[in-house]
Nucleic acid binder design. Structure first.
Lengths: 212, 212
DNA sequence: AATTGTGAAATTGTTCACAGCA
DNA sequence: TGCTGTGAACAATTTCACAATT
């Protein structure tokens, strides 16, 4: 099977959301043209993306919404639940605990860690905050598969090192810092300042930007 | 001038951060090799990117850290401040108000809006929360240039419509929904569930992913 | 000697255009 | 007829490789 690029995965995520909407709107089938329109892509792109995974469409008719949604869910790993741990329950961490899309898509926060004695032992949405000193032990005990990092930049690298050594190889980082991880670790960093920089770039360079 | 692609802007943001670090580490010059290493890119890529904007480097020596940082700051529009308004001060909004990177990079939250009477009039980090019913008027009065949207998905489209009609054409959206905007509006959406989907995809398809 | 700047080559990603099927 | 699936054409991006410069 040909490898799938980052941008294809991103588009699959878009298709997934659009298919959920179409399902709510009682669509039975959908054409590549309609999918493309809703996600601001071209019909050819949609067909190319989907043809990666087999022939789901019916010529003349389009794609069956339910089936396609389930197929994409399964490709994205959304047809099951994932054990997630959150490290750092400050401003960003608290927002993430309440983020309803996570459980909806199967991302279940099983553990919360912090290093602040005032927070440890407290309850966040039904989850007791653990002492980060027990991080490695508890990550293993609870078979955590994904760690979400919402600690200050200064603490991020040492937490990552411990997470990795505890055997968790999939990390979503919200700390605004570059982290070093071994090659076998999948690390994604979300940096909100960098998102704003795209906008200030666009404002500063109206017309020079190629695509949104 | 050739147009700059999305991914080039993203890399410029990376370089900017790395140059800030290098400055703190008292580097005077830096080679494309060192920059590439820190940002997990290739030296050729770094040189190609930077050569877009002129010849800053010195052959045999590398790039002057301070000058290059300032140059990239100016390309990204970070050499000035931007008036930002936040709409929605729930979990995500509260986190954004406290996000220290924003003011550091010149993104100054001048106004906060909400539709919850219990929140209106209250103070968030020194900013009074305004009634969202006055949105258009106050966006204009305060010459807001960027709006950050942190409202529930169900409210997002109507807020966007009002923001656009008030003349603000640059929006960062945290609501997990697809928004329609006119072509002249720059809209970026950050969807944390989609970020996690990349990770669940990676976990489900170890080996099929092309790049991180 | 070290490192930039850059055309040319290689690779990757997107769109076209049409055969094939319901 | 309408729409998928896909090889081929095209476009964009990345990497190579080396002359130019300090």
């Amino acid at each position: 099977m040909r490898k799938i690029s980052e941008s294809t995965i991103h588009r699959l995520s878009l298709y997934y959301r659009t298919l959920v909407s179409l399902q709510r709107e009682r669509y039975i089938t959908v054409s590549s043209r309609e999918l493309a329109k809703r996600d601001k892509l071209t019909p050819a792109q949609v067909r190319k993306d989907l043809s990666f995974f087999g022939s789901f469409g019916t010529r003349g008719l389009g794609y069956p919404v339910n089936e396609l949604k389930d197929k994409i869910a399964s490709i994205l790993g959304l047809n099951r639940t994932w054990n997630v741990a959150l490290v750092g329950v400050g401003n960003v961490g608290s927002a993430l605990v309440s983020y309803k899309e996570f459980p909806r898509q199967g991302f279940v926060i099983k553990k919360i860690f912090d290093n602040d004695q005032r927070k440890i032992g407290k309850n966040h949405k039904g989850i007791l905050v653990s002492d980060v000193r027990n991080l490695a032990k508890e990550l293993k005990e609870d078979r955590i598969e994904i760690v979400v990092l919402a600690v200050p930049a200064s603490a991020a690298q040492s937490v990552v090192d411990e997470v990795v050594s505890a055997g968790v190889h999939t990390i979503l980082n919200f700390a605004p810092t570059n982290l070093k991880v071994p090659d076998n670790v999948v690390l994604r960093t979300v940096n909100m300042a960098m998102e704003l920089e795209h906008l200030s770039f666009a404002l500063s360079n109206r017309g020079k930007i190629k695509e949104l």
